[in-house]
């Protein structure tokens, strides 16, 4: 492993300010453009396809179980500290078909916190 002495990266504050301004403008413009569009309430298609989720649970031999916690080392993130990762399923649409893909996300990410709390509540019952 090579040890290169670090040079301290100094971001020019003016550059950063300029960049932030453009980023905010882009965000604002995006939001505004969407607000003007008519809302599509009826076409809401957001049910979690249980078949896909459960079906994949059976094939545990080849895949990790959703929600399984991995240590940093297991998740191939050596040197990344002792961070714990959680395996989640990302639901995507390929044309009209629904698919899931596995992905590891940090355990302390707010996205998984609520799930954990709910699971804990369930266990207590």
């Amino acid at each position: 492993r090579v040890q290169v002495r670090h040079k301290v990266v100094q971001v020019d504050p003016k550059e950063q300010e300029d960049f932030d301004r453009e980023l905010r403008a882009l965000l604002q413009e995006s939001l505004e453009s969407r607000k003007l569009e008519p809302r599509v309430k009826s076409t809401l298609n957001m049910t979690v396809p249980m078949k896909i989720v459960e079906g994949s649970k059976d094939s545990r031999a080849t895949e990790r179980e959703s929600g399984e916690e991995l240590t940093a080392e297991e998740s191939g993130n050596a040197g990344g500290g002792s961070e714990v990762k959680v395996c989640v399923r990302v639901l995507v649409k390929k044309g009209h078909k629904q698919q899931t893909r596995q992905m590891l996300i940090p355990g302390d990410c707010s996205l998984v916190q609520s799930t954990k709390q709910q699971e804990a509540a369930l266990l207590e019952e």
């Binding site: 929600g67 399923r89 990302v90 639901l91 995507v92 992905m103 996205l111 609520s114």
Partner: peptide, 18 residues
């Protein structure tokens, strides 16, 4: 941005507006 399904460890991408 991402949101997650309660209790299922499933996440999806969802737009902020609308």
């Amino acid at each position: 941005g991402f949101i997650s399904a309660k209790a299922e460890n499933v996440v999806v991408l969802l737009c902020r507006e609308p």
